[in-house]
Amino acid sequence: MASDDIYKQLYENVLNGDFEQTGELANKALENNIDPMDAINSYLVPAIELVGERFGKKEYFLPDLMRSANAMKNALEVFEKDIREKGVERKSSGKVVIGTVKGDIHEIGKSIVASLLTAKGFTVTDLGVDVESEVFINKIVEEGAEILAMSALLPITMPYQGKVIEDLKARGLRDKIKIMVGGSPVTQEHAERIGADGYADDAVEAVKLAERLMKS
């Protein structure tokens, strides 16, 4: 396949959410000596931006968004590994560790936030649901995460977001990370009370918040 065709194919895969072969395609691109930075900036990012735009206009829907985000992620993984190996550091929008807190198995909202963050170029580690404080903290340390995002859908589990923050303080890690919280019962007041850095009530706002937190 010629380079041009591969570029086009990558763009199409992200736009159409055909994520299954995107990783393979990215590898093929590298074999063809395609510049990964160029592939990301000139093809992957414009494609995902178009997906976001169509989503906003209600031409595309969540399944499209999630599939495109997956395609983006699969290609990015391959390209970023290559970039790292060559010793250049591509600027990720930020490293995020995300999960739904202990005692809570509501998954959907958290996963949507994770997908959108990925699509916006964040490097996201999703710990799933029912996540213990220890697990959050260990992962943050391991990944050198810059943002911790915690979801809670039950009033009964909301205080656990505060517990994780307290545990981070106890380990002397609180200042090293920005913390955002969400989930339908979570409010700005709750976020302030437990000492989080931000709250957002939907996934689009969550991405904007993450971008703000990275700048602050």
């Binding site: 989503f55 209600k58 829907f61 969540l62 949507i112 939907d202």
Partner: peptide
């Protein structure tokens, strides 16, 4: 019993 609902595909 069910309390099922549609996922709104614009907001989730």
């Amino acid at each position: 019993s069910i309390a099922s609902g549609l996922m709104d595909m614009s907001t989730g």
